[in-house]
C-alpha cells in the first residue's frame, strides 16, 4: 500500500455552547468530531458515511482547517496543518480542495464561469495571466463542459453542470486530495451517475485522493475503495467498501445497510429490516459508554459503561463494538 498522503491522528473538534444574555457563559460542549484517526493514500477513494449530525461535514472542515482543531493532528504530506501558520495553510490548500453539496449555493451567481475558474489560478499564480484563458478551457473540457460556455453565469446551467463547474474549480490547482461533501445528493439519479463516473475517472487519471462524504451507502459503495462509518463524532467501522457494506460487523452499520431500500421488489419485501428506534442522540449530551447503545438491539450493561475502541475485525477492517465477536456468533457468521 502506498504511503498515506493525508493522515489524521486522534482529531477532535469541539464547539463551546454558550448561554446567558448579559453574561455569556459556556454551558456545554458539542463534540462534533471526537477522536478520529484515518489515513488516505494517493489515488484512494475513502467514503465517509453517517446520518446527519454525525460530524462528517465538520471532519471535512477540520481537515481543511476551516474550523480550529481542538486536539490531534492533521498531516498532509508530512506537514502538520494543525500547527501551521495561516500562510502555510493557504499554501496547503493548493493540494487540498473541496467540492460542496449544493451546486446552487456554492457558485457565486455574479461571477461568470471564466471568473470562477480563473480566480484560483490567479490567486495561487498557477499560470501566467496570458495563459489563464487557455487553462480554464482545458479545465472545462476535463469535466465534460464545452469551453464555449465560459462567459455564461451559473443560473444558465443545470444542477449537474453546476456540479461539474464546482469540480473544475476544485481541480484548478491540481490538488492531491479532494474532499467532496455530499456532491451528488442534490442531483437526480441520471445526473448523479454522470457525476459519479466523472469523479472516479478523474481520480484514476490524476491519481487523486478523494474523501467522498455521503449519506447514501449505495453511492459510497460504488465509488469508494474504503469506507468509514461515523456515529456521533467517532468512527465506528472502517474497511474495504464492498466488504463493509455487504458484510457489516458493527450493529450500527448493519442497521444503516438494512435501511437502504433496494430497487428490487422481491428482495425488498422479503428483507428483514432492522429498524432503528428513535433519532441519533444529541452530541451536546451524548450517552455514556458506547454512544450507540440506546438504539442498539445488542446492547448490554457493559455497553453503557465503557467507550469501545476501534479494534481489528477481519482483514484490513476495524470496528468499535464491545460485543463484536458475540454478535458475529449470534448471527451465525464466522
Amino acid at each position: 500500500m502506498p504511503p498515506p498522503i493525508l493522515q489524521l491522528n486522534d482529531v477532535k473538534t469541539h464547539f463551546p455552547v454558550e448561554s446567558g444574555f448579559f453574561r455569556r457563559q459556556q454551558t456545554g460542549t458539542v463534540k462534533a468530531v471526537d477522536g478520529v484517526s484515518l489515513t488516505v493514500a494517493r489515488g484512494e477513494v475513502l467514503g465517509l458515511v453517517g446520518e446527519s449530525g454525525c460530524g462528517k461535514s465538520t471532519l471535512a472542515r477540520t481537515i481543511l482547517q476551516l474550523v480550529p482543531t481542538t486536539a490531534g493532528t492533521v498531516i498532509l504530506e508530512g506537514k502538520n496543518l494543525t500547527a501551521a501558520s495561516s500562510a502555510e495553510i493557504l499554501a496547503a490548500r493548493h493540494d487540498l480542495q473541496m467540492v460542496f453539496q449544493d451546486p446552487f449555493a456554492s457558485l457565486n451567481p455574479r461571477m461568470t464561469i471564466f471568473a470562477t475558474l480563473a480566480e484560483p489560478l490567479i490567486v495561487h499564480r498557477v499560470v501566467p495571466r496570458e495563459k489563464v484563458a487557455e487553462r480554464v478551457a482545458l479545465l472545462m473540457a476535463k469535466v465534460g463542459l464545452s469551453p464555449q460556455f465560459m462567459e455564461k453565469y451559473p443560473h444558465e446551467f443545470s444542477g449537474g453542470q453546476r456540479q461539474r463547474i464546482a469540480i473544475a474549480r476544485a481541480l484548478a490547482l491540481e490538488p492531491k486530495v479532494i474532499i467532496a461533501d455530499e456532491p451528488v445528493s442534490a442531483l437526480d439519479v441520471s445526473i448523479q451517475a454522470q457525476i459519479l463516473n466523472l469523479l472516479s475517472q478523474l481520480c484514476r487519471e490524476m491519481n487523486l485522493a478523494l474523501i467522498f462524504i455521503a449519506h447514501d451507502l449505495s453511492v459510497v459503495k460504488h465509488i469508494s475503495d474504503r469506507v468509514a462509518v461515523m456515529y456521533l463524532g467517532k468512527i465506528v467501522e472502517l474497511g474495504p467498501a464492498a466488504e463493509v457494506i455487504e458484510r457489516p460487523r458493527h450493529p450500527y452499520t448493519r442497521a444503516l445497510v438494512s435501511a437502504i431500500p433496494t430497487p428490487n421488489p422481491e428482495i425488498e419485501r422479503a428483507k428483514k429490516r432492522l429498524v432503528l428506534a428513535g433519532d441519533p442522540p444529541s452530541p451536546l449530551n451524548p450517552p455514556a459508554g458506547c454512544a450507540f447503545h440506546p438504539r442498539c438491539s445488542y446492547a448490554q450493561e457493559k455497553c453503557k459503561l465503557s467507550v469501545p475502541p476501534l479494534i481489528p475485525a477481519g482483514p484490513n477492517r476495524e470496528a468499535a463494538c464491545l460485543r463484536l465477536d458475540e454478535i458475529a456468533d449470534q448471527s451465525g457468521e464466522t
Binding site: 446520518e51 431500500p261 432503528l276
Partner: peptide, 11 residues
C-alpha cells in the same frame, strides 16, 4: 430524512 429515519417512516 436520513435513511434510518426513512425506514421508520416507510414502515
Amino acid at each position: 430524512l436520513d435513511v434510518t429515519v426513512q425506514a421508520q417512516i416507510l414502515e
